[in-house]
Design a protein around this nucleic acid. Structure first.
Length: 307
RNA sequence: GCCGGGGUAGCUCAGUGGUAGAGCGCGGCCCUGAAAAGGCCGGCGUGGACAGUCCGAUUCUGUCCCCCGGCA
């Protein structure tokens, strides 16, 4: 039996994934699935560069705007929803096209996740308090005793991972290393004919220019008002991580000038893009498509040739 | 023109009579239930120019050039 196809269109922010994804989906009878940890939130259209109404009307989009900004979200939850969508879309005889820049989400769908417990907020709070009091090094030392392998991999300063490793052990009785080396469940990579394409700029300067321009546009389209609106409710920990919220909050509170806010957001977005590139370079199955212009037709042709 | 302050990494600056550092930028990397998050690594730069003192000057002295503030 011929394997059904699943497409992933990934790449750093500002590469033009959204526009390409719509053209691509039209061409191959595809439907788009959000592969972005922030675009799953509604009410953050400018902040997350949500696809336009027109784009959404042209092609079926899934998993966009499915959570309120007050609600938390996680990779595991994402993976579950994404797998369901793949089935539904295949059943309709169409091709799922995952589009977005969250590498971890793509990986979770492709390779699955090892089974680990949901977050234990109470325990987590305690662990952070401990780390704050005695230093994360001390917590790391303790981790070394229960899970030497994990302690070797996790840097003492990487408090989140140190805490998580502890949390996993305390709630399940098994170490995160053991869980990790046990079989990961539900990866899609072998089950379907997966094609992963990453758009990236040949020239870093061109990419940074695009990012800088986009930040300016976001402000012109009403970013500040959008953030003001969002801040009226208590944002979940996840939603509040969206790039732009912290920076614009500083502007609203009078901590930064408009100019400084823009520069800060540009800088943080550049750094984010850099991290995305690092992430996508790791997976050897990812096929790179170099872009040097915004000629969508050309980009689309390159993508089509690879899938 | 005079008085004062200053010219050190792409930027902002620190420091020292024995050839220099910190933040930011920038580059590279790691990554499994917060991932647009979190973490790690990376600094030879004509120390404005020239001359002098000294065993030795980026650090002291002199001259010149440039910048900033004040007075004219």
């Amino acid at each position: 039996m011929k394997k059904a196809k699943v497409i992933f269109l990934v790449g750093p922010t500002g590469a033009g994934k959204t526009a390409v994804s719509v053209k691509l989906a039209k061409k191959i009878k595809g439907e788009i699935i959000c592969c972005d940890s922030m675009q799953i939130y509604k009410g953050m259209d400018i902040l997350t560069a949500q696809p336009s109404k027109k784009e959404k009307a042209a092609i079926r989009h899934h998993l966009f705007c499915i959570r309120k900004p007050s609600e938390p979200f996680s990779v595991a939850e994402y993976r579950k929803l994404a797998l369901k969508k793949i089935d539904v879309i295949h059943r309709n005889g169409r091709v799922p096209v995952f589009t977005g820049g969250t590498g971890l989400y793509a990986q979770a769908v492709l390779d699955g996740l090892f089974s680990s417990p949901v977050e234990d907020l109470v325990l987590r709070k305690k662990l952070y308090a401990y780390a704050k009091k005695y230093g994360s090094r001390r917590l790391h030392e303790r981790l070394k005793k229960i899970d030497p392998a994990a302690s070797r991999k996790i840097h003492p300063n990487d408090i989140r991972r140190v805490v998580r490793a502890f949390e996993v052990y305390k709630t399940t009785g098994s170490t995160i290393s053991d869980l990790k080396s046990a079989a990961t469940s539900g990866g899609v990579r072998a089950k379907y004919k997966c094609r992963i394409v990453c758009l990236f700029y040949k020239n870093r300067q061109a990419q940074y220019k695009k990012i800088n321009d986009r930040v300016e546009e976001m402000f012109e389209s009403g970013l500040v008002d959008e953030v003001k609106r969002l801040l009226k409710v208590k944002l979940s920990k996840t939603a509040s991580c969206a790039l732009g919220i912290k920076q614009v909050k500083g502007l609203i509170n009078g901590v930064y000038s408009l100019h400084d806010t823009k520069e800060l957001l540009k800088r943080d977005t550049r750094r984010y893009a850099k991290r995305q590139i690092s992430w996508f370079k790791r997976d050897k199955a990812i096929k790179p498509v170099a872009i040097d212009s915004q000629n969508i037709k050309k980009i689309l042709d390159s993508v089509l040739a690879l899938i």
